[in-house]
C-alpha cells in the first residue's frame, strides 16, 4: 500500500461526565488507503461512532478531550488543524452520513436548498447553478424524477429517499472519504439492500474511500474489504474481511458471529455470549471482554492484552488464542 489516505494512530477520546472523565475510545489505530473500504463493527458503547466523529472533529470541545492520538489525512494532522481549515475539509474532502436521515435534514428547507447550501458554501456556486447541480446529484443517487423531487421537503420523502438525499449532500463536493455511520440501520431490509448497492456503485464512480460503521456483521461482510471489531472502546480484532469471517481470532468476534441466527438451517437454540455489554463508566481490569469470555484465564483478568499480529495483516487482542496458535 502506498501512503494511506487516512491514518489514525493511538487515538484516545474521553468525555466529561458527572463522575469524571470517561474513556470512550482507547488507543484505536488503523489505516485506510485510497478507494479502500473499511468496516468498523461493534455493539453499543464500543466506541465505533465516537471514532468516526473524532475524524471529523465533531465532538463538543468543552466536554471532550483527546489525550493521545494523531489523525493523519493527506499529510496533515486533523487533530491539530484550526477550526476554519477543519470546516473546509468537513463536507468537502471528508463527508459523513448518519443513521437517521430525518434528524440530519432540516425540515423547513427543500431538498434543493439543503444540497445547494453545501455547494454554495464549499464551491462558491451561485444559487441557480447549485440547483442544477442538485438535480444532477439526485440523479446520481438514483432518485427518479429528480427535477421534480428536488423541490420536496424532507417529510414528503420516505426513509430510503431521505437517506439518498443525505448521500447526495455527502457526495456533492466529491469527497475523497465518506464515513457512513449505520446508514441503513433505520431502514427496511429491501431498502437497506438498495442503499448498500448505491453506496458501492458511487464508491466506484467517484473513487472514494469508505468507512462503514455498523452493528450488523452481515452488512459489514457484504460491504467491507477490511474490518475492525471494537469492544468497550478498543479494537479487539482487525483483519481483511475474509480472514475475519473465516478465522476469527478473538473470542468476541467468534461469539458475535456464532450469535447471528442462521438463515439456511434450523437450530433449537442460538449460540450466545453470556453477560451484558459493560456500562461505559465501568472500569474493567485486564481484557475488557474477560468477564464475558468463556476462554478467559487468570492473566486476561489482570493484564490488558496488546493488539498483536496473528496472521497476514490480521491483528487480535487475545494472548490465549495466540498461544494456542503458536505454542511457546
Amino acid at each position: 500500500m502506498s501512503a494511506p489516505l487516512l491514518s489514525v494512530r493511538d487515538l484516545t477520546v474521553q468525555f466529561r461526565t458527572d463522575a469524571g472523565w470517561l474513556t470512550a475510545v482507547e488507543q484505536v489505530g488503523f489505516e485506510l488507503g485510497a478507494q479502500e473500504t473499511l468496516g468498523i463493527v461493534g455493539e453499543s458503547g464500543s466506541g465505533k461512532s465516537v471514532t468516526a466523529l473524532s475524524i471529523l472533529g465533531l465532538h463538543a470541545a468543552s466536554t471532550t478531550r483527546i489525550p493521545t492520538g494523531a489523525i493523519a489525512y493527506a499529510g496533515q494532522d486533523l487533530l491539530k488543524l484550526p477550526d476554519r481549515a477543519m470546516r473546509r475539509i468537513r463536507g468537502g474532502e471528508i463527508a459523513m452520513i448518519f443513521q437517521d436521515p430525518m434528524s440530519s435534514l432540516n425540515p423547513v428547507l427543500t431538498v434543493a436548498d439543503q444540497i445547494s447550501e453545501t455547494l454554495m458554501l464549499h464551491q462558491g456556486l451561485d444559487r441557480k447553478t447549485a440547483r442544477n447541480r442538485a438535480i444532477g446529484l439526485l440523479d446520481m443517487v438514483r432518485i427518479a424524477d429528480a427535477a421534480h423531487r428536488v423541490d420536496a421537503y424532507p417529510h414528503q420523502l420516505s426513509g430510503g429517499m431521505r437517506q439518498r438525499v443525505m448521500i447526495a449532500i455527502a457526495i456533492a463536493c466529491r469527497p475523497k472519504l465518506l464515513i457512513a455511520d449505520e446508514p441503513t440501520t433505520a431502514l427496511d431490509v429491501t431498502i437497506q439492500a438498495q442503499i448498500l448497492d448505491l453506496l458501492r456503485e458511487l464508491q466506484t464512480e467517484l473513487g472514494m474511500s469508505v468507512i462503514l460503521i455498523s452493528h450488523d456483521l452481515g452488512v459489514i461482510a457484504e460491504f467491507a474489504r477490511r474490518v475492525l471489531v471494537m469492544y468497550a472502546g478498543r479494537v479487539v480484532e482487525a483483519a481483511p474481511s475474509r480472514a475475519l469471517f473465516r478465522q476469527p481470532m478473538h473470542p468476541y468476534t467468534s461469539g458475535l458471529l456464532a450469535a447471528i441466527p442462521p438463515l439456511n438451517h434450523d437450530v433449537t437454540r442460538l449460540s450466545t455470549i453470556p453477560g451484558s455489554i459493560p456500562d461505559p463508566g465501568r472500569r474493567i481490569p485486564g481484557c475488557r471482554f474477560s468477564p464475558r469470555c468463556t476462554e478467559a484465564q487468570t492473566e486476561c483478568r489482570e493484564q490488558a492484552p496488546d493488539l498483536v499480529s496473528v496472521g497476514d495483516d490480521h491483528f487480535a487482542r487475545c494472548p490465549p488464542r495466540l498461544h494456542r496458535m503458536r505454542p511457546v
Binding site: 431498502i191 439492500a193 438498495q194 452481515g218 461482510a221 469471517f245 458471529l257
Partner: peptide
C-alpha cells in the same frame, strides 16, 4: 436481501 456474515456471498441486486 438478508445480509449474511459471509464475505464471499454475492447478493442479488436489491429489489427496486
Amino acid at each position: 436481501v438478508v445480509p449474511r456474515p459471509d464475505p464471499d456471498r454475492v447478493r442479488k441486486p436489491a429489489l427496486a
